[in-house]
Every structure is written in C-alpha cells, then in structure tokens.
C-alpha cells in the first residue's frame, strides 16, 4: 500500500467517523425531546442565525483574544521555568513543591481568587487562565529539558560553537516535541478555562453568552456557540499547529 493511499484511507476514516457521529446524533434527537437534544440541522441553522443576526462572531473574537493572550503568557513563563527546573537541580528542588501545589489547585479556586483580589476585570481573567495552564507547561518542559542529549551539546562545546547557535540549532530542536505537546494540550485546556472565567466574571465572550442561554434553557444556542468555537480551534490546529508540527518534525 502506497503512502498516498494510506493517507487517503486515514482521511476517509476521519470523515466516516464524523458522519457516523452526526447520524447517531440526528437519530437520537428524533427519539429524545428536540428541546433537550436539538438535531444537528437545527444547531447548524442556529449557528447561521447567530452569525448573521446575532453577535456570535464578536463573542468568538473576544474569547479567542483572551485564549491567545493567556496561552502565550502561560507558554512563555512555563517554558522558561520548566527549562530552568530541568537544567538546574537546585531550582528543581526549590520549585517542585510549589509546582505540585499549583497542579492540584482547582481551576475554579484560582479564578475566584483572581476575581476577588484583582476585581472583575480583564487582567484578573487573563491571569486566572494563565495560572491554570502554567504548571502543566512547566511539567512538560521540565521533562523536555531533562531529556536533552548532553552528547550532542558536547559536540558544540568541542567545536566552540557560539551559545546562540547552540541554543537555536541544538538545544531548542530537542525541545520541539515537548513544546508542540504543550501547545496542543494548552490550546484545548485554555479555551475551556476561558469559558468558565467569562461565565463567572465577564460581560462578553462565548462563556458569558453560554451563561445567558443556560438561564433561558436554550440548548440549541448553547450547542451553536460551543460548536462555533470548537470549529475555530480546529481551524487553528489545522492551519497553524499541524503544519508547524510537520515542518519541525520533518526529520522524523
């Protein structure tokens, strides 16, 4: 079987499973009350309605901006601290207890505390999301830094390669798999936490809208907003993360 055939087969499997899921959903919505489980067609029509007559687009854009800012803050600080802990035993020992504590701190507690300490503002919202994601990035990057092959670094030492070249050509490429894993899991986690943050303390965004539709028991709109945002995250995965993964991991 050629590589192209294998790829085609994998894509057809993906599409088939999605179609199967929609069929099961459609049939389930016939059996169950349509107000409790609206059909896929009804959700699609709701997305269309919110998109052109409502404020779905602006809500998604606001949530996406929060996701983006929180994601980059958590990644930047998480990578720096994770690499520091992976490379230096003293820092690892000093920060390990705090890391375990922050990993076990419930997301909801962090969100509530941030809102109580810093007020119901944008800063508190972004900070709460970043704090929730930060320890997971640290754990990933610490393992990455520990797994760096010292024999390869010794090559640059032997040839007196500059620290700049050593970092970008030898050190960083060894961290790429861990960076990509952090980015993938991070994106999925961050947007879920952003919705909770918006639900609890913001007056805009997808989370805020979900809160309103929850009060009206409007399940169709809840699903419409959710699927619209899932679609956006899938587009980011498809257009940004997957190509980046292919490019950086081409040698494998």
């Amino acid at each position: 079987m050629t590589v192209t055939t294998k790829i085609k087969n994998r894509y057809s499997l993906k599409v088939t499973s999605l179609i199967l899921f929609l069929c099961v959903w459609q049939f389930a919505s016939i059996w169950i009350d349509v107000d409790v489980l609206p059909s896929p067609a009804r959700v699609a029509s709701s997305i269309h309605e919110h998109l052109f007559a409502g404020d779905l687009l602006s809500s998604v854009a606001i949530t996406l901006a929060r996701v983006g800012v929180s994601f980059f803050i958590a990644m930047a600080f998480g990578v720096a601290v994770g690499v520091l802990m992976g490379r230096n035993r003293n820092w690892d020992a000093a920060l390990d207890g705090l890391l375990i504590l922050s990993l076990n701190l419930p997301a909801l507690v962090v969100i509530i505390l941030c809102y109580l300490w810093f007020g119901l503002g944008e800063f508190a919202a972004v900070l709460a999301v970043s704090i929730n994601k930060f320890p997971i990035v640290v754990v990933n990057m610490r393992e990455g830094a520990k797994a760096v092959d010292m024999d390869l670094l010794q090559v640059t030492q032997a040839f007196k390669v500059s620290p700049y070249r050593t970092f970008f050509k030898v050190y960083l490429p060894q961290l790429y798999p861990y960076l990509l894993a952090s980015a993938r899991s991070g994106l999925a986690l961050v947007w879920k936490i952003v919705l909770v943050v918006e639900l609890l303390g913001r007056s805009d965004g997808v989370g805020f809208k979900l809160g309103i539709y929850f009060q009206f028991f409007d399940i169709t709109s809840i699903l419409a907003y959710s699927f619209a945002f899932i679609f956006v995250v899938m587009i980011i995965e498809l257009l940004v993360i997957a190509p980046l993964d292919r490019r950086l991991m081409e040698w494998r």
Binding site: D151, L152, Q154, V155, A158, F159, K169, V170, P173, Y176, W251, R252
Partner: peptide, 11 residues
Amino acid sequence: YMFQSPRLMPW
C-alpha cells in the same frame, strides 16, 4: 573532534 559515535544532529 570526532567522537566514537558520529553524533550528528538528527534534525
């Protein structure tokens, strides 16, 4: 320097 193993960067 030439090491016992080639130590080429796989990427």
